[in-house]
Nucleic acid binder design. Structure first.
Lengths: 196, 196
DNA sequence: GGTTGTCAATACGCATGCGTATGGAAGGAG
DNA sequence: CTCCTTCCATACGCATGCGTATTGACAACC
């Protein structure tokens, strides 16, 4: 299928593993199917990695640490906390891809190879949102709760759309939905601990 | 493990399949592990079912049609639409179990054996919430959007808690979070298409 | 109490994935 | 050009899961 370079690197396997994870779940990370997809045999894999668990751990580390931290760092560059959250809530093809991995890992949350990286990923995003809400004037319990609500709403929306792509198919209605969700989750001007 | 009755029924296999689905995902529905768990051999399974796909379809049908419809019908008995949604958003052990199946199926959303039942399940719940919002006075686009938002927030919350059970561990904080989410998602008294 | 029907055990062939062992090709260093 | 490291192919044994075929146990019914 993809016989571009003859010799692979460790990172090629990680990329293939993450792709398979998003498409077929954790069980999709299997040596022989990935080898066939990469146009090589198992001999290549067992030179780069000790075993399958090593590949899974490396792939999840790359995903949780690098990809997540980079995305968060990019968003932290936005000064206005409201605009920061608004940007986060705008689904893009990239965020949809990340979401499919979120889902795959959520199913395997009980797997010890997955648990630690998944917990860290969720916490990083929720703490990111919590900082934004705190900068908007919310006190600490409410800020964390609102961050959790916004994050879970986004997580569930990705789940819903991946299950039923025809949901809010039109670009118009999807934008309208996101606009409503944003207005409810990140209020426009009010925001002190007072009530209005 | 469970050598209670000697002879099994078709429904025993379906129950075991749903349990395995919630715990280990779609791939957890496998004949020989289930047989071992039920204390029998494959010979039993292939008398009750044609193949694995037949078991998967029967289990998902039971889940999507009976369990979902029954839960919805129970809730529809509550007259006040606000109280109806409030009851839905109160997570119970039962809803947590259903949520784990939600998650397992969300990962396998692309699987054709899963897609149709999962879509129906989501639509049933969102339409249920949409009816409630419409009874509260919201017009049709906003009612559907709010229903989608509430459902996805719930779906994502189940996902988050299953990934990290220590999240909002205390009963106090979890109640406070749910109270906030309810106040934001199903407003207390306002609700006409007007803005306040 | 023998017959029929229901449910399950046993034994088999097949496919796929893991992990190992060993030999070989390709490219840079000298 | 030679050697040595890097990367991969081939071949094997093992485990697990699917599906089939055949036989057997137990119950109900006549």
């Amino acid at each position: 299928m993809a016989a571009k370079r003859k010799r692979l690197t460790r990172y090629d396997w990680i990329r293939a593993a993450l792709s398979a994870l998003g498409e077929r779940g954790l069980a999709g990370i299997a040596v022989e199917p990935l080898a066939k997809q990469l146009g090589v045999t198992k001999g290549s894999f067992y030179w780069h990695f000790k075993d399958v668990d090593a590949l899974i751990d490396a792939a999840l580390e790359r995903w949780a640490v690098e990809e997540t931290r980079e995305s968060i760092a990019r968003l932290e560059g936005i000064g206005d906390p409201r605009e920061r959250l608004r940007t986060l809530m705008k689904p893009s093809p990239a965020s949809a891809l990340i979401g499919s991995i979120d889902l795959a890992l959520a199913t395997s949350a009980s797997d010890p190879r997955v648990a630690k990286w998944l917990r860290q990923h969720h916490r990083l995003w929720i703490e990111f949102a919590g900082r934004a809400y705190r900068q908007m004037g919310y006190r600490d319990p409410q800020a964390s709760y609102r961050a959790t609500l916004a994050y879970t709403a986004w997580l569930g929306f990705v789940s819903l759309v991946s299950a039923d792509p025809s949901w809010l198919q039109g670009e118009r209605s999807r934008r309208s939905y996101i606009a409503l969700a944003r207005d409810l989750l990140v209020p426009s001007t009010e925001g002190q601990s007072g009530k209005h």
